[in-house]
Design a protein around this nucleic acid. Structure first.
Lengths: 244, 244
DNA sequence: TCGGGAATGTGGTCAGACCACCATGACGGT
DNA sequence: ACCGTCATGGTGGTCTGACCACATTCCCGA
């Protein structure tokens, strides 16, 4: 077919760019099914192996989705699809960068919480309260962590910015939170966490953005300050410890 | 080798997780060279093709780097490496999500600018001024865009949070800015942009974080408001238009 | 009419070959 | 003795063709 494209980088890289361009130009709509790997490879004049690598790359980026036995599809290209890789960053970061990530989270989450305070509906507030109460009603760390995540997720969702929500989701992903939370909560921070959550909830119920922003910033800031201390004290790396 | 891992998802996916785990557990250090594709494939008991797909996936994520004829290496795992994919999001987003991205940028950049005002050194300030003057000294849109990017990049760098800088880099990537900027500047916003930049610079020189935050937020907010109007008016999609 | 199974098409995996590139070191000229 | 040159081996990059696993479709028989 179009042999117009000359040598430029590796063959696979070229294929990645071409498919990305097709989507950018609107020639491929979200949800649409692509030609088969074999056809695509023929069209671009490359082998199926190289085409598969290109598809794999775009799959990882959350742009394409391959369904075994069915075909290759363009994702909905929503924030959640494209920002899923953000979680990997949190998983592989350690030491000083963990603090930086928490600083980003503090900035974004305090803003999101402020927005939520202004816009939250009674239904959304009920969802928040559900997880708040569930969190206070149990002592099981696993369950607490689950409802803690859901609590913040519900708030961020009420802010109405899906992109921001997707980023924060990556910054609060289960493994990331678990790593930091474990050490933090060991120091008897449960009670403080409960107070901070209550303050956030009150600000939301009062529709008070400024109070909500301050409460959220303080909440994340507490963890951030603790982690900063840990990193400075011992050169903490916080790898995914292989617990024996 | 370790045939202990049973069937779980696709073979390639398993390989991706295993390599990611090796890095997470510290068995692979940043900058370290990995075994050859052939050896890795043998070790994990899979074919070279599948292993190559796994490597491609981790390459896209910014975790690995393959050098033709030399070998496969673990990247430095710095924020820039891992967040490079963030630019793809900006490239493929359109319509309402563009506004959301700009909102995220406003939040992060205003914070970064405030931090910079508090910490910036004379050398860093000189760098900022260099681009500010260069930007005001030309009429070539390409050059203006270049120095505009460099202006903000220098400020964000002075904030001292590499993770935040990497995210903002993705949100200001050349293609993203070009798409929005083109339309924005067509409406004679040059003069306003100059005033806003001057205000940001003065706040930095005065080491006044609050003024810096306000100026940066207003600056991005201007573009954001304009874009929001565009999206609401015509159902603007802002694809990479194939200009005929 | 409807249930089930075969046929087909798809992505997933494998094997082996060859090419392009890089690093190293042996070699020969100076 | 020094240094540039080039041969060589090893590495990632690409291609081919085959087979497997899964989803969908469709047709046939109950």
């Amino acid at each position: 077919m179009d042999e117009s494209v000359p040598q430029k980088g590796t063959v696979t890289q070229r294929a990645i760019e071409q498919i990305k361009a097709m989507i950018g130009e609107g020639r491929l709509e979200p949800g649409q099914r692509l030609p088969t790997e074999r056809d695509l490879a023929t069209q671009l004049g490359i082998s199926r192996s190289s085409m598969r690598e290109a598809i794999r790359a775009l799959t990882v980026l959350g742009v394409l989705e391959a369904r075994h036995g069915s075909g290759i599809y363009v994702t909905q290209l929503e924030a959640g699809d494209l920002l899923e890789t953000f979680g990997v960053v949190a998983d592989l970061s350690r030491g000083p960068r963990l603090v930086e990530l928490l600083e980003v989270r503090r900035v974004l989450e305090s803003t999101a919480t402020a927005l939520a305070a202004a816009r939250i509906t009674p239904e959304q507030l009920a969802e928040v309260e559900k997880h708040l109460e569930a969190m206070n009603a149990t002592e099981d760390p696993e369950e607490i962590l689950f409802h803690d995540l859901a609590f913040h997720r519900a708030i961020v969702a009420a802010a109405g910015n899906e992109t921001m929500a997707a980023i924060l989701e990556g910054l609060s992903s289960r493994t990331f939170r678990a790593r930091v939370w474990r050490g933090y909560q060991e120091e008897g921070a449960f009670e403080r966490t409960r107070r901070e959550h209550a303050r956030i909830h009150r600000a939301l119920a009062d529709h008070d953005p400024e109070a909500a922003r301050a409460a959220a910033a303080a909440h994340v800031g507490e963890v951030e300050a603790w982690l900063r201390g840990q990193v400075e004290e011992h050169g903490w790396t916080t790898t995914n410890g292989t617990r024996p």
